[in-house]
Design a protein around this nucleic acid. Sequence first.
DNA 1: TGAAATGTTGGGGCG
DNA 2: ACGCCCCAACATTTC
Length: 478
Amino acid sequence: MNTKKSMLVWFRNNLRTEDNITLARAVEQDAPLIPLFIFDEKRDCGSASRLWLYHALKSFERELFRLGTRLIFLKGDSRIILARLASETGAKALYWDRSYEPYQKEQDQLIQKDLEGWGIRCESFNDTLLFDPAQIRTRQGTPFKVFTAFWNHCTSLPEPMLPVRAPQRLSGPAKWPQSKRLEDFGLRDKARWSNKVEAFWEPGNVDVRKNWRKFLKEKLENYSHDRDRPALEGTSRLSPYLHFGEISVRSIWHEMRQYMVQHRRAGIFREAETFLRQIVWREFAHYFLFHFPETIEHPFRKEFEKFHWKKNSALLCAWRKGKTGYPIVDAGMRELWATGWMHNRVRMIVASFLVKDLLQPWQEGAQWFLETLVDADVANNVFGWQWTAGCGADAAPYFRIFNPILQGEKFDSRGDYVRRWVPELSKLPDRFIHKPWQASPEILAKAGIRLGKDYPDPVVDHHQARNRALFNYARMKK
DNA sequence: TGAAATGTTGGGGCG
DNA sequence: ACGCCCCAACATTTC
């Protein structure tokens, strides 16, 4: 055991040993390392995400154990915990992965001030984004507000840092500080989520990189088409692993680049770029929240503060439960409730439906997503909802309203997705699968459906709802 | 990564 | 053969 002064390495959204800059830099200091995780209830996440965190931590702890060390679990206010830990261990430095979320940014500054006041060196590293958001500006020095401009800028920059290898071995201090058990965090309390999520996912899968390579090999060549078909597994499904940093976005970026070079087949370049654009949308969302932290609650376009929403808890409830009477919407909401995840195309459809057809505030939808998604991420979530609501940066214009029937027919033409998640409609012929109310009584009877009983009547008429939304929009502008 | 409304064109039925 | 109407198909504009 080492008797040199130790260092604290605080992990947050970089729960991996591969391409972990924070950890790599700490290792270079040649001091005993105390890896730690703090469960801060003030910065709690939703239930589905909490379950994911449990597994991510569990496997990260195992990874560290294999490298000959431990992961210390602590619970409480990060600032208080770190102050106590610093004095208890006599550590000479604290390293951590930077967070770009509003609450954590402030908290981190306070922590740094505290510790540096006691002569403890503090350093933070970017382990979650391709580029440091503070460094990226337009020529005028303002933050980018348009995705395409942001994308062009990012792709003209020098490539993101190359991934770094996992350390071979980590040495710990002579005396370890007290640690809680992971189980003490109560992350897994809600059994309903653990059963459901564990049936559909492999949370804490240390081999997620294998899934990623499989995606490259099998899914990439049809990505731009298949990613929009919710009945298929056309997407990478990496989002939950990206959120807690079980996989590094830099690794993904570079492996995709490499793949593009190795497979110069026609079309692959386009597919790869479509995928990388998705990665950069994520980047843009985080970037945007960093520069406009108030958008976490408030619409980016100020005029939307006075938009006339029509709060209605019954409608909100029908939406959450997947009982709106619009099959594609209900399928999405039920997939979410059953698995803790929803296909991205369907996220846009259900979000548009809540905000435009039901006139519920986007914040309500955002809250539900945060609670139920295994990949719940404040930056992506807020950005996506404001985009749909038309009040965000580079957002869809408000009058761009999705038609749930047409979207269903376009992206789930044979109704496979609807039938999977709304089984009561499974016997309905294809041509009515997205609009059961148009089927004749005989057809409904044959399919064993009593509308209003086995499956709800539509909670609103889309045509009317669209006009109402446009009217409210016009009123807001006046 | 929208959809509906409105405009235009051209072929075919029909008196 | 001609003019008229209808309407599908496509394009453009509007919300």
